[in-house]
Amino acid sequence: MSEPVMPPRPGDRGVVHDLVAGVVPVDEREAADRADILAWIASGAGLYRRTPPADPPKHLVTYFLPYHAGTDAVFLVEHRKAGLLLPPGGHVESDEPPWDTVVREAQEELGVVARPHPLTPDRRPLFVTVTPTVGPHSHLDATLWWLLDLDPAQRIAADPGEFSGWGWHPRREVAGWPAGRTDPELGRFLSKVEHLTTRTGQGAVTR
């Protein structure tokens, strides 16, 4: 009698592999970063941060960018430690799937319930990057990017301990910000959002 096949646990690397493998790269850089993350997962290396800020020196994180298609605006937070205007986000814990990280961090950082945007109706990430962080403890963030559906009229209770400011910004304006004001890959992410929205005409990816 064969052994029963157990479903993957939330933190299993197979879950993360499937999420990353399902991302369709928009350019050569994203294709390279996607391949890098898949090889890293397959290597057996630790995926999750054990000791802040940089152990192991490469670990899995999430960004989730609130977006309102009606006003074509995105919501950013002014991160105290980074000194940059960034999408909200956080480190993936070893006992949770990355989407659960998004749900947890959206509640902790913004006081909102995470709702996937129509561009990502199946709760999969829309974009992946591998980026060195700034500061004295620089390390590599393997980042899964989500787009959230949020109405600007909704009350947001951002965490003042972590953020010195927050608010909505025109997407096209943010896409043109100079280096050093936000994450260096945010402009590429917003270009992908525009590309997919234009392609589908309805703000949802056709699979």
Results as ranks from 00 to 15, higher is better:
His79Leu: 10
Arg80Gly: 06
Gly83Trp: 09
Gly83Pro: 08
Gly83Met: 11
Leu84Asp: 00
Leu84Thr: 01
Leu85Glu: 08
Leu86His: 06
Leu86Met: 15
Leu86Ser: 07
Leu86Val: 14
Pro87Val: 08
Gly89Leu: 09
Gly90Pro: 06
His91Ile: 14
Val92Ser: 05
Glu93Trp: 11
Glu93Ala: 14
Asp95Cys: 09
Glu96Tyr: 00
Pro98Tyr: 06
Pro98Leu: 08
Trp99Arg: 02
Trp99Asn: 02
Asp100Asn: 09
Thr101Ala: 14
Thr101Tyr: 00
Val103Ala: 10
Arg104Trp: 02
Ala106Met: 08
Glu108Pro: 04
Leu110Tyr: 01
Leu110Ile: 03
Gly111Tyr: 11
Val112Arg: 07
Val113Lys: 10
Ala114Cys: 04
Ala114Gln: 03
Arg115Val: 15
Pro116Ala: 12
His117Lys: 03
Pro118Ala: 05
Thr120Pro: 00
Thr120Ala: 15
Thr120Phe: 04
Thr120Lys: 02
Pro121Met: 08
Asp122Lys: 15
Asp122Thr: 13
Arg124Leu: 15
Pro125Gln: 12
Phe127Thr: 04
Phe127His: 14
Phe127Val: 07
Val128His: 09
Thr129Glu: 11
Thr129Leu: 05
Val130Pro: 05
Thr131Trp: 06
Thr131Asn: 11
Pro132Gln: 03
Pro132His: 02
Pro132Ser: 11
Val134His: 08
Val134Arg: 14
Gly135Phe: 10
His137Asn: 14
Ser138Thr: 13
His139Trp: 07
His139Ile: 08
His139Asp: 03
Leu140Gly: 02
Ala142Pro: 03
Ala142Glu: 12
Ala142Ser: 13
Ala142His: 07
Leu144Arg: 03
Trp145Pro: 01
Asp149Ala: 13
Asp149Gln: 12
Leu150Gln: 09
Asp151Cys: 06
Ala153Trp: 12
Gln154Val: 12
Arg155Glu: 14
Ile156Val: 15
Ala157Phe: 01
Ala157Tyr: 10
Ala157Pro: 00
Ala158Asp: 03
Asp159Phe: 04
Asp159His: 07
Asp159Lys: 09
Pro160Thr: 05
Pro160Ser: 04
Gly161Val: 11
Glu162Tyr: 06
Phe163Arg: 00
Phe163Ala: 00
Ser164Gln: 08
Ser164Ile: 06
Gly167Trp: 02
Gly167Thr: 04
His169Asp: 00
Pro170Met: 00
Arg171Leu: 13
Arg171Glu: 01
Arg172Pro: 00
